[in-house]
Design a protein around this nucleic acid. Structure first.
Lengths: 110, 110
DNA sequence: ACCTTATATAAGGAAATAGTTATATGTTAA
DNA sequence: TTAACATATAACTATTTCCTTATATAAGGT
């Protein structure tokens, strides 16, 4: 991989919020309103972080009804790098629990 | 490792210049004037990048006469992360060659 | 159609960042 | 002790970053 491309990936993951996002996505795909449960910031702010990750190809986005689900893009040229980095990041089971406890997508019945 | 600490390391390596510095240091320790041979920027700018890497513990600094040599700090809590990242960065033999061709520390006789 | 919910985009502001030039500090050698 | 070299620090600037609020778009339910 080009050094510049790797630097872009590292810069994107060099933010606490975005690193947490990808660490959570490694365990489970999530929609925006689920991330709202675990971050103490506005919905637009979360959307903007997800957009950057999407633009770089690190994550995929898929609309399901009114929700947009994000997941790690395993086809990305940055996937292996991201994956290796995540080996050094703490498990996010606690955050996942926090999401599931509040269950913001309850209404969809799925 | 704490997520916040990992994010700091990633942010530091998420800069083209600093990522190149650590990639070069993986192959060979270098002093500031050697980095000046491979970066198209001022000496203070290079010093400032090295300071950030030093402050985080990623690199070591050792004065040898009038030169200050930098090397990867293998004792750093970030070393394994850095090392895994460098697996995804290109080899820097070309840059090393560029340094050795101009040999800025010629005068020391070492 | 209309209201509600979910998400995205636009616009703006405060703080961080990466570079610059000028100057200070530390080391060597004449 | 003075000059030359290597590096660090200070002060400043332009740009980028991350957040905010306000608004737009998209989908679902009544």
């Amino acid at each position: 991989m080009e050094l510049e491309r790797a630097a872009l990936g590292l810069k994107l993951l060099g933010d606490k919020t975005r690193l947490t996002i990808v660490a959570v996505l490694k365990q489970r795909e999530c929609c925006v309103c689920e991330f709202q449960e675990i971050f103490d910031m506005s919905q637009p702010s979360i959307s903007q972080h997800l957009r950057k990750l999407k633009d770089s190809g690190i994550v995929n986005e898929a609309r399901k009804g009114q929700w947009v689900y994000y997941s790690l893009n395993q086809q990305s040229d940055l996937f292996e790098l991201v994956n290796d980095i995540l080996k050094h990041a703490p498990d996010q089971t606690e955050k996942i629990y926090q999401i599931e406890k509040s269950n913001p997508t309850l209404r969809c019945g799925c």
